[in-house]
């Protein structure tokens, strides 16, 4: 049996979702002062850029952005097979006292966010850190909650949720793939 595949968000829906997320981020921060967006490599970086573009269009403010590669902060490095490729971490601004929003595509176990928080702490002490994700699919293994969510998806443990973005994948789409029922 082939796994079943359903589109959670199409290109238009994703665009609307990102716009709403941008609004919520500005709203929660009470404006754009001290706001910093930090995307998690790789798709989180693209999502953060999209959100920043929406904010720039609506508020006329270029929000500083950074990128985190959490590979070196993973807690499962010793158990994963071929070494994951290390991406670039780029935090071009001081984050001391800032209001940092970590941006990622999918929130699942929470381990990636945990690693991102640890890595962020090595760059300084922000005034507060929020979490914005396009999809929250549940299944947390750590006590981590998102502040801004594009869409909640009920996905079983074995299912896959993929956020595809134009910059990297050539299309905008969110897809849920569930395991075949035996």
């Amino acid at each position: 049996m082939t796994p079943s595949r359903s589109v959670v968000l199409n290109a238009r829906a994703l665009e609307r979702t990102l716009a709403r997320m941008a609004d919520e981020i500005v709203e929660q921060n009470d404006g754009t002062d001290d706001l910093v967006l930090v995307g998690i490599q790789r798709r989180g970086v693209h999502v953060a850029q999209r959100i920043a573009a929406v904010i720039a269009a609506r508020e006329g403010v270029e929000v500083p952005r950074g990128a985190l590669d959490i590979t070196l902060y993973r807690d499962d490095l010793q158990t994963v097979g071929p070494r994951p490729i290390v991406g670039r971490t780029d935090i071009p601004m001081a984050i001391e006292g800032k209001s940092v929003v970590i941006v990622d595509d999918v929130l699942f176990t929470g381990r990636t966010v945990r690693a991102a928080l640890n890595e962020l702490a090595d760059f300084g002490r922000p005034a507060r850190v929020r979490l914005a994700v396009v999809i929250d699919r549940g299944g947390r293994e750590l006590p981590i909650q998102p502040d801004v969510v594009g869409k909640y998806v009920e996905a079983q443990a074995g299912a896959r949720v993929d956020v595809f973005v134009l910059e990297q994948d050539g299309r905008d789409e969110v897809v849920l793939e569930t395991e075949p029922v035996a």
């Binding site: 070196l72 902060y73 971490t89 780029d90 640890n118 090595d122 760059f123």
Partner: peptide
């Protein structure tokens, strides 16, 4: 980049 940071250390 790690060697450029204030805290030049990752937990890998």
């Amino acid at each position: 980049e790690i060697s450029e940071r204030t805290i030049k250390k990752v937990p890998t």
